[in-house]
Every structure is written in structure tokens, then in C-alpha cells.
């Protein structure tokens, strides 16, 4: 039984890495039929596969097209498994609110970050693109977010990122959230200047940053 389980999890992971949506669905159905723990299957199967895809992206073996296809397979498997998750199996997740800042509608980078964060066990609320600074602040408070993640590809909209930090300060809630920024024209220097907590150069880096910022030591600091 346990060898079966490991085999199925490995098949799930491989289906994601191989960008095989049909295989991911078939294996996820087999997991459900066998009555295995759906939450564990997502974590040790689909998410593990997506993590490997992320590594391949880091190593420049995979590029954006491959990463998108891997995530399609992951979500397809997830759709099958989600209804089977037992509530008591769900660990408390760190929450992220993410979006592309107002004035910009390029969201391919933001979507990749969202995928990788979800894969890594974050609960992500995606506001979408062209989002006014106040909406980030409001949603972050509503869902009690741990992280506010801001993306832009355009230099014209970078100021909106600083505006989010200003509004958090004005409302006296800056300490409740970690603000992370990324996108084409953004640099560590810019992140420092607007008072963000971190800058990530790509989606894989965003995961590392989010993990670091929500680790118990940092979060308590």
C-alpha cells in the first residue's frame, strides 16, 4: 500500500514536470479512488513536481512556456484532489495578496509568482492587474495577509508601489505585513528606497523571499 502511495505521488510529480495534464488528472483520480490523503498527495506529488519545475526554470532548462504548462498540469490535478481534502489535514497557511499595480496590465510575471507561491503552500489572493494601491491595503487587512506582493513591468507605474507602503504607514499598519516587490524595472535599490521588505528577481526567488520573511524568526522581528 505504502509503495503504491509513493508511486502515485511520484507519478503526480512527474506529470507536472512533464507538462502532462491528462496524466496529472488520471493519477489524481487514482489517488482519490484509493482513498489516499488528498492533501498529502498535493503536497508530495503536485507541489513537489512544481518545485522541480521551478528548479529547472532556475537552471534555465525550463522557460516561461514550460513553467506555464507545468502549472496547467498542477492545477488540473489539484481540481480533482481539492474536493477530497479533509479539513483537519489542512495546516494553517501563510496568506499573500498579490497584484499588478495600477496603470499596468502585464501580468505574466505576476501569474508565475502566484503559481509558485501557491505551489509552495501559500494561500494567495490574486487581485489581478491594474490595481489601485488602496485595494492592496484594504484586501491585506480583510484577509489578514502576511505578505503583500506587488508587481509591475512598467517604469511608469513603479510609484504606485511606494504609495502602497505610504498608505500602510499612514494607517499605522505597516508592521502587520511584509511588502515584496518585483518586475522588469524593479531593483533592490528601488525596493530599499520605497521601504519594501524585499525584492525578488523572478518567481523562484519570490518563493525563497516569501519563505524567509514568514519564517518564525523574521516574522517575530
Amino acid at each position: 500500500m505504502s509503495a503504491d502511495k509513493e508511486t502515485l505521488y511520484k507519478q503526480l510529480a512527474d506529470a507536472v514536470v512533464d507538462m502532462d495534464e491528462d496524466q496529472a488528472v488520471a493519477t489524481a483520480e487514482a489517488v482519490a479512488t484509493a482513498g489516499l490523503d488528498a492533501y498529502e498527495a498535493i503536497e508530495k506529488g503536485l507541489s513537489a513536481g512544481m518545485e522541480r519545475a521551478g528548479q529547472l526554470f532556475d537552471e534555465e532548462e525550463y522557460f516561461i512556456p514550460e513553467l506555464l504548462m507545468c502549472s496547467d498540469a498542477m492545477y488540473a490535478g489539484m481540481d480533482v484532489l481539492k474536493p477530497h481534502i479533509r479539513q483537519d489535514a489542512v495546516a494553517e497557511k501563510r496568506r499573500v495578496v498579490i497584484g499588478v499595480i495600477q496603470g499596468d496590465t502585464h501580468d505574466i510575471g505576476k501569474n508565475l509568482v502566484k503559481i509558485m507561491l501557491e505551489t509552495s503552500g501559500f494561500d494567495v489572493t490574486d487581485l489581478g492587474r491594474d490595481i489601485p494601491p488602496a485595494s492592496f491595503v484594504q484586501t491585506a487587512q480583510e484577509i489578514d495577509a502576511d505578505i503583500i506582493a506587488l508587481s509591475t513591468l512598467m517604469t511608469t507605474t513603479m510609484d504606485g508601489m511606494g504609495e502602497v507602503v505610504r498608505q500602510l504607514n499612514d494607517q499605522g499598519v505597516r508592521d502587520k505585513f511584509k511588502v515584496i516587490v518585483g518586475g522588469g524595472p524593479i531593483s533592490q535599490g528601488f525596493a530599499d528606497r520605497i521601504g519594501a521588505d524585499g525584492y525578488a528577481v523572478n518567481a523562484a526567488d519570490a518563493v525563497r523571499l516569501a519563505r524567509r520573511l514568514t519564517s518564525p524568526e523574521v516574522a517575530a522581528a
Binding site: M19, I64, P65, E66, L68, M69, I108, N111
Partner: peptide, 11 residues
């Protein structure tokens, strides 16, 4: 659309 094109390259 960029994402659609990216997927089409493989599909």
C-alpha cells in the same frame, strides 16, 4: 496574447 502564445509553442 503572450500566455496563450507561450502555451501554443508546446501544444
Amino acid at each position: 496574447g503572450a500566455e496563450t502564445l507561450a502555451r501554443l509553442m508546446l501544444k
